[in-house]
Amino acid sequence: MTTIIQWCEYLGGVTDTPPRGFPMHITWLLFGFWWTLLTALIAMFCGQSSKFIYIDF
């Protein structure tokens, strides 16, 4: 579980320290493709966006 959390947090931009086993030498390549994938998902799902639940409070 700890390993999964570390991977999620690094890929999510939460932590600065990569998890053990992360291929540091090609970070630039991986994150380039990661950004593309995230952008594609945003473009695909943003059509029915609703307001943030907490926003009026």
Binding site: T27, W28, F31, G32, F33, W35, T36, T39, A40
Partner: peptide
């Protein structure tokens, strides 16, 4: 992450964006 790597990430993302289009 240094500036060169960040620039490379942007280029890859742009390439990905272009391919996606």
């Amino acid at each position: 992450m240094n500036i060169r790597n960040l620039a490379a990430t942007f280029v890859i993302a742009l390439f990905g964006f272009f391919t996606l289009n």
